[in-house]
């Protein structure tokens, strides 16, 4: 698998099909892997792929520093592949000019991250190629949302108390936003300061406002890569918010962001089948 990956990357660079391969490198096998940007065929030996390859590299596809490097090939796991689909649907990338290298994935983390335990995209979809083999099986929706169901079994006041407690630790570092492939806005609403729309103060109220805003902006767009959750230095379980958005989108609109490249995006289309029960 690793040989295939390095060979593929080398060929893409040697044939000048791409200028940069966005992949994973790892200095210390005991430490995490991290993003690397390979521009010379001889450097493809630096590429690795293993269960420490956490990052969703598609975030870099919209970064100006990386765009300036030219045409890109990007490595994706199954979950990351979904964000390529959404980026293309939202016209943030020209899908034809990006080479998407899917990596069959059996999960990241030791033990596996929560998202991997209910993953139904071990084999990445809608990529230009897939390297390696992994077994895929459908996971029932109720299993995908099990953690959320547990949360929702609590009363509204208990849930509010939980979020108040958790978000009291938020320092507004915006790591959750910065790692997110879907947070590509050049100027986030949180950074709009004439007037300041969302307070910059990292108080519990300010933090609730920030996360509610983030949830609104990611509804029907979040692909559930859970990088926000992993990146949060305060260990706030943002995954619960992601699951909430995903469940609402699936139940109300029969739509899972990034799963079907031809499906109309919920926020970008109107369908007579759209439920309007929320209008009271």
């Amino acid at each position: 698998m690793l040989n295939d990956l390095r060979q593929t990357a080398r060929q893409l660079l040697a044939d000048k099909k791409v200028d940069v391969v966005i992949g994973y490198g790892q200095a210390d096998p005991a430490g995490p892997a991290y993003p690397v940007f390979i521009t010379r065929p001889e450097d493809t030996e630096q590429l690795v792929f293993n269960d420490r390859c956490y990052n969703n590299l598609t975030t870099f596809l919209t970064r100006k520093e990386i765009r300036a490097m030219g045409r890109a090939a990007v490595l994706v796991k199954g979950c990351d592949a979904k964000s390529v689909v959404v980026l293309a649907v939202e016209s943030q990338i020209d899908r034809q000019s990006v080479v998407v290298i899917g990596m069959a994935c059996n999960g990241v983390g030791q033990p596996s991250l929560a998202k991997c335990r209910t993953c139904d995209v071990h084999m990445p979809r809608h990529t230009d190629m897939v390297i390696g083999q992994a077994a895929d099986h459908a996971i029932e929706a109720k299993d995908r949302y099990a953690e959320l169901a547990e949360m929702m079994s609590k009363s509204a006041s208990e849930r509010l108390a939980y979020w108040g407690q958790e978000l009291s630790r938020c320092v507004k570092c915006y790591a959750c936003r910065q790692v997110c492939p879907m947070c590509y806005c050049e100027r986030c609403v949180a950074d709009k300061n004439q007037p300041q729309v969302i307070k910059t103060s990292a108080t519990t109220m300010g933090n609730l406002a920030w996360q509610i805003n983030r949830a609104f902006h990611l509804a029907s767009r979040c692909v559930g890569c859970d990088e926000c959750t992993r990146a949060c230095p305060a260990g706030i379980n943002l995954r619960l918010l992601n699951l909430m958005l995903a469940q609402a989108t699936e139940e109300q609109f029969d739509y899972r962001p990034g799963m079907d490249k031809d499906a109309q995006p919920v926020l970008g289309c109107f369908s007579v089948k759209d439920k309007e029960c929320f209008i009271k």
Partner: peptide, 10 residues
Amino acid sequence: RCMACGACAY
């Protein structure tokens, strides 16, 4: 590869 967040500084 820096993601431009404040996790380091904070």
